[in-house]
């Protein structure tokens, strides 16, 4: 999956490798463990629904959809090209299996709430999953949706946060900032290397979800066993929705991308891609 991500973004010359590499295990756990789905029949009415809210993580999402059998992996290299079904950010139904359009952050969880309400109204058993980013959780709409999901007691809904704590302009908080020049500062500031530090801290993050009425689980988002166990536990929770806060590493698996804001929305050069692929082979 990670090699797909590197090849796709390098070939396209643009894209979002960092936040794609951080959610690989989450997507693999969903598509190869938790979701009841049929890639040969993407509109099967009883399928579980997965909503990608962090719509820029298309390299990871498309790679997992292709490997799951939704479309031929060869198509991955058309990513972001004119005429391709694989737009830079998701478009509903392109290709079939993509449940919703995304790209403007903060919208996925509301859509997932609507799906879960529809399933309950129909007495259907299918479940809804929604993957959120740090940026998604900056958006007020996500918290409107979080309030609504708990208010309507949507236990068929599971949110997963790819909590890598790095976003477009830099570091969400101080978790991965290496400098020690934060003293006396309030709010965010632009550091010596040009990245913004402490953009918008989500901490205390688990407490926020708890206060909104959710069942909260936390795990290492790169440990497949932990992620699948959390997804399994969420299925058994009654009377409220579950959020799984996955602690992840932006750019996971490529040494020079890990915790590096430079690769949020920038593709690797040919040389960088080569090095990344060498590391991922090894």
């Amino acid at each position: 999956m990670r090699r797909h991500i590197i090849r796709m973004t390098a070939a396209a010359g643009s894209g979002h490798p960092g936040g794609s590499l951080s959610c690989v295990e989450i997507l693999v756990a969903l598509y190869f463990h938790a979701l009841r789905h049929d890639p040969a029949n993407p509109y099967w009415p009883q399928r579980d629904r997965f909503v990608l809210s962090k719509g820029h993580a298309t390299p990871a999402y498309y790679a997992v959809l292709a490997e799951a059998g939704y479309f031929p992996p060869e198509e991955l290299l058309t990513f972001r090209r004119l005429g391709s079904r694989l737009q830079g950010h998701t478009v509903m139904g392109c290709p079939p299996g993509v449940e919703m359009s995304a790209g403007a952050l903060g919208m996925g969880l509301s859509f997932a709430v609507g799906l879960a309400l529809g399933a309950r109204l129909d007495g259907a058993a299918w479940r809804v999953y929604c993957l959120l980013s740090d940026g998604d959780c900056n958006e007020g709409q996500t918290w409107e949706a979080a309030m609504a999901a708990a208010h309507h007691r949507l236990d068929g809904l599971t949110a997963i946060v790819d909590y890598n704590r790095i976003q477009n302009d830099g570091f969400s908080d101080y978790a991965h900032y290496r400098g020690n020049d934060s003293r006396g500062r309030t709010g965010g500031w632009v550091g010596p290397d040009g990245y913004t530090v402490n953009i918008m801290s989500l901490e205390p993050f688990a407490d926020k979800w708890l206060a909104f009425g959710w069942h909260v689980l936390e795990c290492d988002g790169h440990d497949l066993r932990q992620v699948t166990a959390a997804l399994d536990e969420a299925k058994g929770v009654r009377g409220r929705p579950t959020v799984i806060i996955c602690h992840t590493v932006k750019g996971k698996g490529v040494s020079f991308m890990e915790h590096n804001p430079a690769f949020h929305g920038k593709a690797p050069t040919a040389e960088q891609a080569e090095q990344a692929l060498r590391e991922l082979e090894g």
């Binding site: 449940e99 919703m100 919208m107 969880l109 509301s110 859509f111 997932a112 709430v113 609507g114 799906l115 879960a116 309400l117 529809g118 399933a119 109204l121 129909d122 709409q141 949706a145 609504a148």
Partner: peptide
């Protein structure tokens, strides 16, 4: 967004 989700069902 919720209306969109309901419509999708």
């Amino acid at each position: 967004g919720v209306a969109a989700g309901l419509a999708a069902t």
